[in-house]
Design a binder for these strands. Structure first.
Length: 578
RNA sequence: GCCAAAGUAGCUCAGUGGUAGAGCAGCUCACUCGUAAUGAGCAGGUCGCGGGUUCAAUUCCCAUCUUUGGCUCCA
């Protein structure tokens, strides 16, 4: 049997053991479902009272008892009527029984005092479960059957493994995630903040965060020009006419900030950049000879995200998309998609993401646009992904109503997937805004429109970068690249001049002239994860040397300053990590 | 929006029905230092905001905002 099947059986069985423990401790509890999931399991309960973290300990202790008792998991098949009778006081189970198709077997699994409606499979006995290889992690709310129209149940999440060592490895992984948390690092490294009193979900980029953003934006802009894009700037608000035409007021009004009334018109803050780029397109009549158009903008948009959905930089209400819109003729489509994908891969690689996976989403049930166009566009997406040699999955029917798309997800340093790039066809807006171009034969035709974002939003991308690098950015992105640390006051003057010299090279440099001892200065620079620390004392001053302490702890003393400068240039230019 | 928990100094956190405390950071002074914290002193808080109970509320209750963990959502 494959290891993951075994693990999944252990986890599923653990869920049953937890349900037994909860029922014994909280009589009258109604039970819902309890599957194995990635790394663990959960079970949903309708409890007589809310749970506290202390209850998790009690439940854990009870589970250990059940595991120690070594009871078998016994399977039994019964009729639908028997099942109804058995679960007469378990309304959620009754609902599940009714949902089982006629003719399908209904099976039960029993261990000790607990019987659950369950397809299985399970381990043979609780002897196969390890009392020290599981941990209950948290209590959360979850809608019955995942619908917000249904009652909210209490879900207990746990993790389970075959042995304590595996559990420890997983717990270490969770601790690593906590250490990398961009919200925590954002504070510690003084990168950004959010202010509840000034409006939730709105990001303040501090000088050190802004330096990173500048580095990203500078690179982004110059690469866009190199890759045949034009950069545009568009307004932040637009009259309701724009949003009525685009259809946003019809479909997405709930997610837009409410209107501002002025001169008897309603103005809306933009939730997307596309209608503005379309206005530029519509400004003149276009010939096929001008195509393709590639217009990019770091466009700041505002969306009303539900209060409970906000999360640090990852889900915010105001964010800047690295947006671009391509207007192409049908015969340019294939090449343009290939080019966008290649560009996208280049950008992601530049930021240190190597493991990239593509997801293609195809036409959903309700869609606009000619099915043949959908076919052609989807084929173009597949062709591009294959040409790039990317691994990909297809989400049949998972596209937006207006067109198929490719999403790229990257794996970070600890294996978590983040969606960054997206390339989407749009068969809706060109119709709604009646976009045309004059083709070779003199007739007016409809251009293809493609939306794409390479980094997604700068806020979210920043969050992902922080977590990927755990705050230790490669020098080209580091807020401070070099920290100068004079050994004593006698080196202050020299250090200030060295700072000037290094800044002249274009480096981001800070000199620590505080009253702290040298050791404390090193500690502070280290805590800020500054890549290079230069220790300056008598020896260095006398011979134009620097003593380099690298972020990793390595020291190289007596380096010629000019050698250090060329080394840093090389590292920054190549975007290497140190 | 829903379920649950939390909100005390800039940060991390302790604490109590009789209007608050630590460490770090900050400021001042002294020390002038060779690879992860020099020492002493000072200052800093309407205990998220609004009601209620009480002689008295930061503490108990209600409402509200925000945050956290999830759920739902994410054009």
């Amino acid at each position: 049997m494959a290891d993951n099947e075994k693990l999944s059986m252990i986890r599923h069985s653990m869920a049953h053991v937890m349900a037994q423990a909860v029922l014994e401790l909280f009589p009258g509890t109604k039970i819902a479902i309890g599957p194995a999931i990635e790394n663990g399991f959960y079970y949903d309960f309708d409890l007589p009272r809310p749970l506290t973290d202390a209850d998790l300990e009690t439940i854990t202790a009870k589970m250990k008892e059940i595991i120690a008792s070594g009871v078998p998991f016994e399977r039994k098949e019964i009729s639908r009527d028997e099942a109804r009778k058995l679960f007469a006081d378990q309304p959620y189970k009754l609902e599940l029984i009714e949902a089982i198709p006629e003719g399908e077997t209904i099976s039960l699994y029993t261990q000790g005092s607990f019987t659950d409606l369950c397809r299985g499979p399970h381990v043979k006995s609780t002897k196969e479960l390890h009392a020290d290889a599981f941990k209950l992690l948290n209590i959360a709310g979850a809608y019955w059957r995942g619908s917000e129209k249904n009652p909210m149940l209490t879900r207990i999440y746990g993790t389970a493994w075959t042995n304590p060592k595996e559990l420890r490895v997983y717990m270490d992984y969770l601790a690593d995630i906590e250490k990398r948390d961009h919200r925590k690092l954002g504070k510690e490294l003084d990168l950004f903040s959010l202010h509840e009193e000034a409006g939730p979900g709105l990001v303040y980029w501090h000088p050190r965060g802004a330096r990173i953003r500048q580095a990203i934006e500078d690179f982004w802009r110059s690469e866009h020009y190199k890759n045949g894009y034009e950069l545009v700037y568009t307004p932040h608000v637009g009259r309701s006419w724009l949003w009525e035409t685009s259809g946003h007021l019809g479909f997405y009004k709930e997610s837009m900030y409410p209107p501002m009334e002025m001169d008897k018109s309603d103005y809306y803050v933009k939730p997307m950049n596309c209608p503005f780029h379309i206005m530029i397109y519509k400004n003149t009549k276009h010939s096929y000879r001008e195509f393709p158009f590639r217009w990019a903008e770091l466009g700041t948009v505002y969306r009303y995200e539900k209060a409970g959905a906000l999360h640090g930089l990852m889900r915010v209400r105001g964010f800047t998309q690295d947006d671009a819109h391509l207007f192409v003729t049908p015969d340019q489509m294939d090449d343009e998609i290939i080019e966008v994908l290649r560009f996208s891969m280049f950008m992601l690689h530049s930021f240190g993401f190597e493991d990239i996976h593509a997801y293609i989403s195809t036409r959903p049930e309700h869609s606009v646009g000619d099915p043949e166009k959908w076919e052609a566009a989807t084929a173009a997406l597949k062709k591009a992904v294959e040409k790039e040699g990317l691994k990909y999955d297809i989400d049949e029917g998972g596209g937006a109503f207006y067109g198929p798309k490719i999403d790229l997800k990257v794996k970070d340093a600890i294996g978590r997937e983040w969606q960054l790039s997206t390339v989407q066809f749009d068969f809706n807006l060109p119709e709604r805004f009646d976009l045309t171009f004059v083709d070779k034969d003199g007739t007016e035709k409809r251009p293809y429109m493609i939306h794409r974002a390479l980094l997604g939003s700068l806020e979210r991308f920043f969050g992902v970068l922080i977590e990927h690098y755990a705050g230790a950015f490669p020098p080209w992105l580091s807020p401070d690249q070099i920290a100068i640390i004079p050994v004593g006051e006698s080196a202050y003057e020299y250090s200030k001049n060295l700072e000037k010299r290094l800044k002249g090279e274009g480096f981001r440099v800070v000199t620590d002239l505080s009253a702290d001892r040298m050791n404390a200065k090193i500690r502070n620079a280290q805590k800020m994860k500054t890549p290079y620390m230069l220790i300056i004392g008598e020896k260095e001053m006398a011979e134009d040397l620097v003593s380099v302490r690298y972020r990793g702890g390595k020291q190289v003393n007596g380096v010629k300053t000019s050698d250090f400068i060329s080394e840093v240039h090389k590292t920054i230019d190549s975007k290497e990590q140190i």
